[in-house]
Amino acid sequence: MGQGASPGRASTSANPGARAGLMLISPTLTYAVLLLAAPLATVVIYSLLTGGRGQITWDFTFANYAEVWTGPVYRAIMLRSLTVALGVTCVTVLIAYPIAYFVSFNVEPSRKSLWLFLITIPFWTSYLIRVFLWKVILGYNGVVNSGLMGLGIIDEPLQWINYNVGALIMTLAHAYAPFAILPIFVSLEKIDRSLLEAGQDLGESKLRTFWRVTLPLSMPGVIAAVLIVFIPTIGDYVTPDLIGGGKLPMIANMMEVQMLKVNNKALGSAIAVSAMFVVAIIAVGFVLLNRRFLGPQK
């Protein structure tokens, strides 16, 4: 290689390639810096300033954080968000694992992408309408209650299925299901099938082979699934609003109230930074707890 008409570009020597690569990526990178990094930095700075009534003054303070971390309302909302996000993550990943396993081990290779396509389609179709449909399904006069009453199974509407944390978890678990399946599927696909045969040749039962070989080898996928479900669900805005009927606010709803309705951008920013901090701590902690699964294998 490198003997062609334009050796500078075709050669793999570090320098010209590095310059070309940087030039190519720079428009996208500039965009991300201007519209993502800079706004995030602004939010961090705002969170340390004094705000209120639509004004921001350049007085550095930690008062916003003190309020977010000690105020009982904020603590309750933060705890609810964590409970919902953890609940959704557990439900989603536990339900998703057998599906990923089924598609990877029991479906013929030629039909795998059809299954994956079927699993992903609902994810891409109007999130808003799907969440609203769950409200319609689980509501007091909703589909489940009216259906069961029509069939004569119950006499009055069930109340434990609507407007509570359980309904939030149900809705979000449905919304994020494909997110959990894909990473687990990818890690199961990577497992060398001869390892499983070796396990069984050495006298392990199928269940023990799964427990000692398949599950540990698929842990990177499970970890990715946990993170990819946990992080967006903790910041969900629509579900608490529609399903919780405004009575079960989560972090995102609290951010909206402070940023726009109360118009205290400093406090709103402190909530946003605190939320990112909590999410980052949990994510890093979770990865560290599982690092033995992430080590040597590819």
Binding site: L40, T42, V43, I234, G235, D236, I251, A272, A275
Partner: peptide
């Protein structure tokens, strides 16, 4: 990143 954070930081 939760979309709410992307949208709020851009809005600010």
């Amino acid at each position: 990143l939760p979309e709410m954070i992307v949208s709020m930081s851009l809005l600010v």
